[in-house]
Design a protein around this nucleic acid. Structure first.
Lengths: 347, 347
DNA sequence: AGTCGCCATGTTGACGTCAACATCGCGTGG
DNA sequence: CCACGCGATGTTGACGTCAACATGGCGACT
């Protein structure tokens, strides 16, 4: 395998840019003064600063982040570990993380995990060890962390999103229980005798907490509890399960653990000729963009992904910079009532 | 502003890991030999290698990527510039880029652009200049590149995704024109006299090419061309525009430039009491996960985002490693026929 | 008037790695 | 029996930056 690289130039054909020394020479000052200007130190004479700045401009100087990182031990970068085929919610969270990181002057290093298996997660952590990050935000079900004998680089700050409280790390989570209660009570309040539930996969903590809270709410109101049907978050699974529910005339209210599955339920109900919301009411979870355009527009529990992302970065950077861990924090939810819910028939 | 940092330890409380020198001492060899083992060079005695390896293990040695990057001039990282609130398609592409990059041993640095304005894009490029990447993949409408006086670091390999051919860079794109033709001809082939179009925003090249191709196809078949309605990719805009179309009894076939807008059209049609597909047929573009669960399941043009991402990384790394630019490449599309299309009423 | 202290600036060295070159030992062929 | 070559390993220095310390000048206060 031959390359076109000349021995003297390590970069495949691309020469390195000018360094501090070049700028220093151009401006007639020492390298240290250039460093001070580049880092915005105050103890530089205004006139000198201007001269350095114009020298930088002229030469097109860019600080070398590798050298800086080597010297300071800081990378000014946050690692994010998440599943590859990520859900809509994760993407929104990632989005918010990106904005918050950028605002703080950090860049983002993505460390995808192709498959949510124990081994893959370990691999991701191995990659992480050699990655240039100051801290990590993990958006992965924490049970995988428990199972895998991952050893994160010791002392690396970690924040876990949307997972169970894990005593080794600090976390940020949506108040799943509250959201599920809002959904369930909305339906009960409309007059439905009880509420059926389509849950997310068992291994998901979010799914588990939504299911538990739904069940508790039902019991608290003395409503009958039917076994939840378990889907995999996909619209397709919601459709399958929805078909079963649609076949049972007793079903008048369904709470799906996310909007995608709710969409599948809606489709199943249409196919089975059961009117929504006249005969059956449906509530989702997430409030994805499209939910307002489902047919009928979906009543759902809104999550504030942006807030989750923002707080994650805040907690992480706090730990990176001060060494202190933040308390776990809970983000609220909000019920958004649209047109997929109504009182039960005959009410 | 006091920190807890001790003068001797640059990392806020977190000590650096062991270095090559430590491993070398432990294994009783020179640092260079450790380096050779770490980089998988062959000219190391098997027994020596084993000794070094176990010393690494024992000490928990991790190569310092900053030092390596400083020395070699390579970061083994790919930068991705994209809009913050990215579309479903971009996410899928990002996903594929992540997998491909990981496979090649590169990490991903995300450089989000909060708002698609000229200024913001420039800012992103500024950030990029000091970011530690070997090349960049840009997933942004290229017209912004033309407008903004961006100066990328000279010699930085760049690949542009889903945008017009830009002579300065190589690109990877989906064959938008072919996809739009497939959609239009499908509808025409069903017997519709013509096809109405809900286009994406004017500034989007993808939207423009889909619109042009739709128009050309119509003309090629001698069908009447009605002015396209222009949306903003959102389901909400599809709904608004769909309401107008629904009010016109002459409309029997609609081609929306993406699935979200198609979803809005579906809703508008339901609200207006026009049956799909009995009275009006609808085709989308993208084939997002949920499209199969719309009501009715949406006929749409599938894009292979994974392939787009894979090829982008391939082109970029080829340029990074060899210095040669790859030819632009086009990714195919596929028509997925579901239940939202049928012959026009009375056919 | 002398001393102290502060500000702007310069000098030195080390962060961890790896390329280039140097060295050493052993086997082979003349 | 010696020259030569090759493989394994060691030594040196430089990548670009910044912290720590050094220097030098000038004003303020005793």
């Amino acid at each position: 395998m031959t390359t076109m690289t000349t021995p003297g130039t390590p970069l495949g054909g691309r020469r390195r840019g000018p360094s501090m020394a070049d700028v220093a020479r151009e401006a007639g000052v020492s390298g240290q003064t250039v460093s001070r200007v580049a880092n915005g130190r105050t103890n530089v004479d205004a006139e000198t600063r201007a001269r350095v700045l114009s020298a930088m401009e002229k030469l097109g100087y860019r600080p070398n982040s590798a050298a800086r990182a080597l010297r300071t031990g800081r990378f000014r970068s946050i690692g994010v570990i998440m599943f590859t085929l990520s859900s809509f919610g994760n993407m929104r969270t990632l989005d918010a993380i990106a904005s918050a990181a950028e605002e703080a002057g950090y860049s983002l290093t993505l460390i995808p995990v192709p498959h949510p298996t124990r081994g893959e997660v370990s691999v991701a952590f191995d990659r992480l060890a050699d990655a240039a990050v100051d801290g990590v935000i993990i958006i992965i079900e924490a049970h995988l962390l428990d199972e895998s004998d991952v050893d994160l680089p010791p002392g690396l700050p970690v924040v876990i999103v949307d997972s169970t409280g894990h005593d080794r790390f600090s976390g940020v989570d949506t108040d799943q229980a509250h959201g599920a209660r809002q959904a369930t009570e909305h339906l009960l309040g409309l007059g439905h005798a009880t509420v059926w539930h389509i849950a997310g996969p068992e291994r998901s903590y979010s799914a588990t907490r939504r299911r538990q809270s739904w069940e508790e709410t039902l019991r608290a109101h003395g409503a009958e509890v039917h076994a939840p049907l378990v889907g995999d978050w996909s619209a397709e699974s919601g459709h399958e399960l929805g078909l079963r529910l649609a076949a049972d005339p007793a079903v008048t209210a369904v709470f799906a653990a996310n909007d995608q599955m709710a969409l599948g339920v809606l489709r199943a109900l249409h196919e089975s000729g059961r009117a929504v919301p006249a005969e059956v009411s449906v509530v989702g979870f997430d409030d994805m963009e499209e939910a307002a355009s489902f047919w009928p527009p979906l009543t759902t529990v809104r999550q504030f992904f942006h807030e989750v992302g923002r707080r994650s970065v805040e907690s992480l950077l706090h730990e990176v910079e001060s060494g202190e861990r933040r308390e776990p924090s809970l983000v609220d939810t909000e019920l958004v009532v649209r047109e997929s819910t109504a009182p039960p028939p005959g009410a």
